[in-house]
């Protein structure tokens, strides 16, 4: 196994962990974090696969895509975060989306 493949596999594992979290966690904040973990996995796969180039320099196209993706992920997270806050404020007093650990998929 090459280094690139090892990192790509780590990315796949991150993606799977995030996917599991998105489906099984009930709290919106946990879902949001899970989506971010999934995204990080995808970025890691892209960067790892880009490093397979032989010329000494990694493939710049996936790198550009990751740069773009990180910034989009940040802005999407921020919008989702403010939506989550709005949801929590909507029902004053009680906190919806209680940390339901038993929630199944």
């Amino acid at each position: 196994m090459t280094t690139a493949q090892f990192y790509a596999l780590c990315g796949v594992v991150l993606f799977a962990i995030g996917f599991h979290g998105v489906v099984t966690r009930a709290h919106q904040l946990r879902k949001l974090l899970s989506v971010n973990v999934m995204g990080s996995g995808v970025f890691l796969v892209l960067v790892a696969l880009a490093s397979r180039a032989t010329g000494g320099h990694p493939d710049p196209v996936p790198h550009a895509m990751v740069l773009t993706g990180i910034v989009v992920a940040i802005s999407a997270t921020a919008v989702a975060l403010s939506l989550v806050r709005r949801v929590h404020e909507g029902d004053a007093g009680e906190a919806p989306g209680d940390d339901a650990r038993e929630a199944g998929p």
Binding site: A8, R52, A53, H57, D59
Partner: peptide, 9 residues
């Protein structure tokens, strides 16, 4: 995937 691939570089 092939261990060495230049892609679009």
């Amino acid at each position: 995937l092939p261990p060495e691939w230049n892609g679009l570089s």
